[in-house]
Design a protein around this nucleic acid. Structure first.
Length: 368
DNA sequence: TAAGCGTGGCG
DNA sequence: TCGCCAAGCTT
């Protein structure tokens, strides 16, 4: 890469790397976003590692806007890591419903319990943090820097974009990751590494955006190689993604009772794979690999509903048909009867929440 | 190493 | 509308 040779820490002379950090920190002092999990720069308050950790897990591949209400609810219900560790699994999973990437919720529980078992204090080093469930290279570095003030090289998708442009790295992602990390290391200051990391992320979110970067208001535009070369908007390059297959499947609405006593059968998804461990409607075995078989789980007088749900996952698109039946007293799949009036509290992931809404809209009273 | 793993917003 | 993208981790 070119960046490292150019940057070889002319840090002390006030040029290059050191200048970028100083400009960015000065910009951050005036322009930091106000976020629920963030301590304002210069406030003197010390961040709560629990809140930093919780926010970082929630923010993995997830937007600030989506996280905000979940962060508020989690910290209201479970103000400390000990509170979270003591919560029943199903409560935490249900509270996470809708946020996506449900392995994060299972790792969140495991991590909280590990921390409590170790005395209730988060590790304060990158290495110690990295060993926790759900904490990878990025998250460990971010917590070490933000919660504990340690110098750490924090590289997320924002930083990848900013650094790719700053040093005009033309190698496509993900092949360019090592080069980007080295370049980020070279511009990361010893002091205020947490603020620096957050400044880079704020810059990426508000200025050095994916489309139409706002170079005119960028505090480090004068240091940006891509801007000088007129290629900022087309960096970083990315290797093409594989096409998403389309799959079909069926979900089954099995109902019993009348009026206020109406109940629907919910199952728990297997511990591994899609939507692992989450409550769901029974379905027919659809997966990323193949279509469902359309075979209902029990014999009954099934009715095919008009509604269907199309849902895009990361790696495939699913169109799910809906079938409904009254429970006639025969065998049912293992599950729990859930009051239809409280279906919104079941903690269904979005796919099944939409399926349930579709079933209720098409089959409002269940008796025909 | 590359694939598996959610969801909602945006242009 | 629809493909791209977001404070990635795990296996």
């Amino acid at each position: 890469m070119k960046a490292s040779s150019e940057m070889t820490l002319s840090d002390k002379d006030g040029g290059g790397a050191g200048a970028i950090a100083r400009l960015l920190l000065r910009w951050y002092d005036d322009h930091a976003r106000s976020l629920p999990w963030r301590i304002a720069p210069g406030s003197g308050e010390s961040p709560d590692p629990y809140r930093v950790w919780l926010s970082e897990i929630m923010l993995q591949q997830t937007t600030v806007a989506a996280v905000a209400p979940y962060f508020a609810e989690f910290t209201r219900r479970w103000p400390t890591v000990a509170d979270l560790a003591a919560a029943p699994d199903e409560d935490v999973l249900a509270a996470w419903a809708g946020l996506g990437y449900y392995a994060r919720a299972r790792n969140l529980i495991a991590c909280a319990r590990e921390v409590v078992a170790a005395g209730g204090v988060f590790p304060d080093t990158e290495e110690g943090l990295r060993a926790l469930p759900g904490v990878g290279a990025y998250t460990a570095a971010a917590i070490a820097a933000i919660a504990f003030g340690r110098r750490a090289v924090v590289v997320d998708a924002n930083v990848e974009r900013v650094v790719s442009r700053l040093f005009a790295i033309r190698t496509p992602l993900p092949a360019s990751k090592p080069e980007i990390r080295t370049a980020t290391d070279a511009i990361t200051p010893e002091d205020r590494a947490g603020d620096f990391a957050q400044a880079m992320m704020d810059l990426g979110a508000r200025v050095c955006t994916v489309r139409e970067p706002a170079c005119l208001i960028c505090p480090i535009a004068n240091h940006c190689d891509a801007r000088e070369q007129g290629i900022a908007a087309i960096l970083p390059a990315k290797t093409p993604k594989k096409p998403r297959p389309e799959r079909t499947g069926t979900a089954f609405w099995i109902e019993r009772g009348e009026g206020d006593a109406r109940e629907v059968l919910l199952v728990s998804r297997p511990a591994k794979g899609m939507l692992a461990g989450m409550r769901a409607l029974p379905s027919d075995g659809w997966s990323a690999r193949g279509d469902g078989d359309g075979v209902p789980p029990v014999n009954a007088h099934w009715q095919v509903l008009e509604a269907s749900v199309t849902h895009g996952f990361t790696h495939f698109t699913l169109t799910m048909q809906l079938m409904a039946a009254r429970h006639d007293g025969g065998d049912v799949p293992e599950g729990e009867w859930w009051p239809v009036a409280r279906i919104g509290d079941a903690g269904l992931p979005t796919l099944f929440a939409r399926a349930a809404a579709g079933a209720l809209a098409c089959w409002p009273d269940g008796d025909d």
